[in-house]
Nucleic acid binder design. Structure first.
Lengths: 145, 145
DNA sequence: GAACTAGGTTTCCAATGGTGACTTGATGCC
DNA sequence: GGCATCAAGTCACCATTGGAAACCTAGTTC
């Protein structure tokens, strides 16, 4: 059994703290996780995975993202070496964003996540509806069995 | 080639909108993604994957999480059927959180993400340092080649 | 009866995210 | 000439979110 970051086989992180420990707030791994685990990152990398795109093209594809968040997220993705930005001195300046090799490795690990969302959303919504229904039936929840 | 949500092979989401489209803000898949793509969810599910845990146990393991966020995140995970909560009428009441079968399938897809963070953090930090260094050398960035 | 435990909730403040207006430089339109 | 337009943003402002710390309940030990 490999000692991946998690799936520690019963070991608590405190017992393995010589390894990268995403559960310690100071650990760089945790910072990386904080950085990549946000919805816009997942969506942007997903689009760039299939080819370079321009700023407003991304904005149109990702329904609901604000210009601010798009430019902010792209900037920090560029800073972290996950996407690269190229500006062309065309008539209105054209800026093209593309995924880097490093970013591509991350995008690959994100695919299962989007697939999970796609295939399990129904179950999630069902569970949610059941939870809310029970809430109505029993306004005062019994917390102790 | 399978038509997963992304990796559309050059097709833009607008061309495939009869399928779940995470890029449409109204699509349930997008909501699921928004829900699960946050740092606390990733960390909590990672811990519960290796066995049930109690509230304060989780709090101690996840350095930096506030009680509010822990209880809030657990509550919404429970609502979505990803974790289950059991309270025992012991002396101080004992509450145990465990992962559901549905949650376990999600936790599995999250493992590669933590592994990516672990193995690529160095490259990310290096890219970041280079970016910041260039910023110093050339305070005024040339946006046009 | 004061302090401690577990498992929270509430309150308040700071940071984050969204909205919409503004910018810059070149170009087409009238 | 002057006005609108477009791409790719930035800026100022406001609403929502997240964090810190206090409080709560109920039983237990000192």
């Amino acid at each position: 059994m490999d000692r991946t970051l998690l799936g520690l086989g019963g070991k608590r992180p405190s017992e393995v703290d010589q390894l990268p420990d995403a559960y310690a707030s100071a650990c760089p791994t945790r910072q990386a996780l904080d950085r990549i685990a946000d919805k816009w990152t997942v969506l942007i990398l997903g689009l760039l995975e299939s080819g370079p795109m321009r700023f407003n093209q991304l904005r149109r594809e990702i329904e609901g993202i604000s210009q601010k968040m798009l430019s902010q997220t792209l900037k920090s993705l560029e800073r972290d070496g996950l996407v690269s930005r190229k500006a062309f001195a065309t008539v209105p300046v054209t800026v093209e964003y593309s995924i880097t090799p490093l970013g591509a490795t991350l995008a690959e690990t994100l695919v299962p996540l989007r697939m999970w969302a796609e295939t399990h959303i129904a179950q999630m919504l069902e569970a949610r509806a059941a939870y809310d229904r029970d809430d109505e039936d029993a306004p005062v929840r019994l917390d102790v069995a």
